[in-house]
Design a protein around this nucleic acid. Structure first.
Lengths: 191, 191
DNA sequence: AGGGAACCATACCGGTCTGTATACTTGCAG
DNA sequence: CTGCAAGTATACAGACCGGTATGGTTCCCT
């Protein structure tokens, strides 16, 4: 009897996840079928299910990896563009976001995923919630390191501006959202 | 030859729209099929298509009516709870939102719809964009009536907090989001 | 009287959905 | 050399998708 431990970390598994990630983000989760993913990845549904077990778990893997990639991108960006603690380092999160989403109009992958799976028992929901809490914690930490009073309060408020800016920019089609967020953050971080 | 002008404003048409609205909001657009809508509304697909022409147009009708209802609800709420112009009337928009979404976890219908149809030529996209622009214009007007300088700038900033609060509250599961938004708005509206 | 809007019931269309089954090949590690 | 993970190819299951076709009934307005 062989227990066939599911291991997505194979060359084809990686190709499947890459393809699925691009399609899920670009078109939405329900809009993309496993047949399409397998074809575009140059493999078969059999292998997809051998690697990921179900579409839901593939979706969860997509969200997890996107969260990890964004975290890595953001950390790197901050270290390269705003080394010193201070308000500028908080604002630089918006710079990183703008760069990360440049030329795209699909907004936040987690907000989009929540629209499709929120309120269900889908394994992706934990990832979504975690991403928002992580972003909040990051803002609190940056505000604290900037030596600003009440970092818990101010960090949370700045986080709201960050999330609002993505929504307004993408769903609202308002290009100035990022600039507005930086200006509002500057006010909240002052004194 | 009869030109059969499509008119959704019939008793059954209203029932279809009511049913579809509840299902679309609760489960998402692609997750709900026209068969289910017709059954739940106690009618047939034939009548659904006679009234609305296509699923896309039914979705657009759902979004349009939700925008109209929220606008009416908000106007009424403000007139009853914060008659006088001033910062309190701006904050009351969050009160109204909290009441409007009370006991629900599906957040903003327009953000959710954008996640599923954004970037396509779906007729609902115009409604989504319009809703965000209307909310922005409302905030600018309320800030202006409050006698606060730079209402265009401050109104836009307050709008970011509003949109951010919905996302953080629902997708992030953070209950304090509304309180945080009111506190941040108070700071942006001061002096 | 008659025309048409509104509605119900049912069946069908081609396609897509997630997921499984069967059977085979390749390459590597003990 | 053998056992197994990883992969390909193809077919199928059963449900559901949006949308159309056919045919009939009720009721109102002219």
């Amino acid at each position: 009897m062989t227990t066939t431990v599911r291991n997505p970390h194979t060359p084809t598994g990686a190709r499947i996840l890459d393809t699925a990630s691009a399609l899920f983000y670009e078109r939405g989760i329900r809009a993309v079928g496993v047949d399409l993913i397998a074809n575009e990845a140059g493999t078969t549904k059999k292998t997809l299910y051998d690697r990921f077990g179900s579409k839901d778990e593939l979706v969860a893997a997509y969200l997890s990896r996107r969260a990890a990639r964004w975290a890595a991108y953001l950390t790197d960006y901050l270290d390269r563009h705003a080394t010193e603690p201070g308000p500028q380092r908080v604002l630089a999160v918006i710079d990183a976001l703008e760069e990360w989403l440049k030329g795209q109009d699909r907004g936040c992958a987690f907000v989009n995923a929540y629209a499709e799976i929120g309120g269900t028992d889908h394994p992706g929901n934990a990832v979504i919630r975690q991403d928002k809490q992580d972003m909040r914690a990051l803002f609190v930490r940056l505000v604290e390191e900037a030596g600003i009073p009440d970092p818990e309060v101010v960090g949370a408020q700045v986080h709201l501006l960050y999330e609002g800016a993505i929504v307004v920019r993408t769903a609202g089609g308002i290009d100035e959202a990022y600039d507005e967020a930086r200006a509002a953050m500057t006010r909240l971080l002052s004194r």
